[in-house]
Design a protein around this nucleic acid. Sequence first.
DNA 1: CTGAAAGCGCTTACAG
DNA 2: CTGAAAGCGCTTACAG
Lengths: 334, 334
Amino acid sequence: MAVTMNDVARAAGVSLKTVSNVLNDYEFIRPATKQRVQDAIAELGYEANLTARSLRSGKTSMLGLVLSDLSAPYYAELASRLMKAASRRGYRVLVEQSGAEASVELSALHGTFRQLTDGLLFTPLVLDADAIAARAGTKPLVMLGEHIMDPRFDLVTMKNGEAAAALTTHLLQAGRRRIAVIGAHPEESTGTAGLRMNGYRKALEQAGVQFDADLVAPAEWRRDTGAAAVAGLMASGVQFDAVFGLNDVLALGAMHELLIRGVNVPGDVAVAGFDDIDEARFASPSLTTISPGMDEIAERSISLLLDRIGGRETSGQGVHMESGFELKIRESAP
Amino acid sequence: MAVTMNDVARAAGVSLKTVSNVLNDYEFIRPATKQRVQDAIAELGYEANLTARSLRSGKTSMLGLVLSDLSAPYYAELASRLMKAASRRGYRVLVEQSGAEASVELSALHGTFRQLTDGLLFTPLVLDADAIAARAGTKPLVMLGEHIMDPRFDLVTMKNGEAAAALTTHLLQAGRRRIAVIGAHPEESTGTAGLRMNGYRKALEQAGVQFDADLVAPAEWRRDTGAAAVAGLMASGVQFDAVFGLNDVLALGAMHELLIRGVNVPGDVAVAGFDDIDEARFASPSLTTISPGMDEIAERSISLLLDRIGGRETSGQGVHMESGFELKIRESAP
DNA sequence: CTGAAAGCGCTTACAG
DNA sequence: CTGAAAGCGCTTACAG
């Protein structure tokens, strides 16, 4: 059907191996031979069969990316950047949406998805380090985010605690004293929510402001849950003069609910988020937040994964990288 | 290395073919034999090698999806739904970001990307029908969106014209007479922008309101360009009492700019968009827009593509499907 | 520098 | 109902 290497070899009057050599940039080919092969390739419109190459070589030139859902703006923006960074290096990215379900996370670690890819970028949300270690197989695996901080794994993340503290300190310096936090996951202390909560508490402590558990509202990280959490706080009668959404969509949902109820933002209540998704700049009022350096995260995680795949990174321990962050002060919390 | 069908065959004391039969749900297998094979598979933890299967069968169980960029919320939300719909049917989706570049769109039509997938969902933004037809190859191809309406191609889209007219009529009925349009692409009449513009003009005509070219602002479809377009209109001194963003991010960017400049929305200027991305509901004020029935679009396009792949859809002409729409009236244009 | 041969792990006719 | 053989299109030692 399609034109194969054999057709090219015949047309160029050389063997299969010589065509393969040309395709794989083997050094020692007589220029004339090389030219003849390249002419034949161009003339026949030959395109290498990736599947056959993969079967033989064991390499697919694809990277796996496991995240909860592309409809979450942070993941969509991150996936977009990761795909561009991979593309620049000749790799494609195959995305798997886990929906934060353990069974999907598990099956992404081995089986078909793993076979199809040379390495995996993994944002675990429910599996713990031991479960992952038990199933991770032998291909390179780089963790994204902060659910798992374990010396066995490579990890690319950001300074969550520091950043959350910086944001909280900004709110305190602006005179806020009753800062509600939305999106806490009380059961965990190591995950993203836990680290950001720690930063929040540390900043309060440093400022000599008493931590008040009534100001903490657990919530999944979506807009609607952010709105509901603020509604819950208001219904409970707790007083607050600022809201820190542990990510931007939470903060935006919260802000929406406040404005609907006639609360002035930032006059009565300041609002801040975390992630600096594109939307944050264009919200009304625009959202004060933390920019996690997504470009840097994308670039470094792809580099690290490809270094593992290429055998250029051989450290036995996991490599841990933290990207920088930037506090973006906007209208919602000047 | 990994356990192969051969290992399973040996363990079960049967031939390769019998293992293959069990794997592929071949009807006529003695139950005892089947059981023995299944036991061996379970015991050895065998997992089929997709690459080898693909090479032999020519099927990859992957679908291609070409769109401009996942960081655009509409595409991210659509991709998420498409992936879920595909997953339910045993397919994965491999995404390619074209960045609206012709060279990327072209290379997605053939070559490696095409080989890796059994069929393609394609949102063309720059290529025209002839260019696509010339390069499309033989594997199934379903167009998404409305850039190409050509009887040669399968197409899943929505009633852009009708929906834009319905939205415009709503604004007119609310008493607006000077409705600015943001995001026009003056050079094209068939693409999404063109179809929505047609709906806008038709609604004006029906209401006996004169079309005014000064109210039309060309722009790429992003938040920042939406904001800039409104700024441009205001700078030019054109009077308007409503803004129709040809998609939601344009409308949200425009709304942001209006609010920053102290314009009351919807008091002074009503704002409406198109797409009903998740953000629209939670914007402040929440955004009046058109819901294009994304679930339906995702479901139908995956079904159509798989019907083509499976040979269940054999119409020689392209199949054209239009999903329904819904006008979502919210605070920004009550 | 180039060629002939083997083999990656499956599926697919073809026998029986 | 099941087996033996061929072959998908490449890459990879191994010769020469």
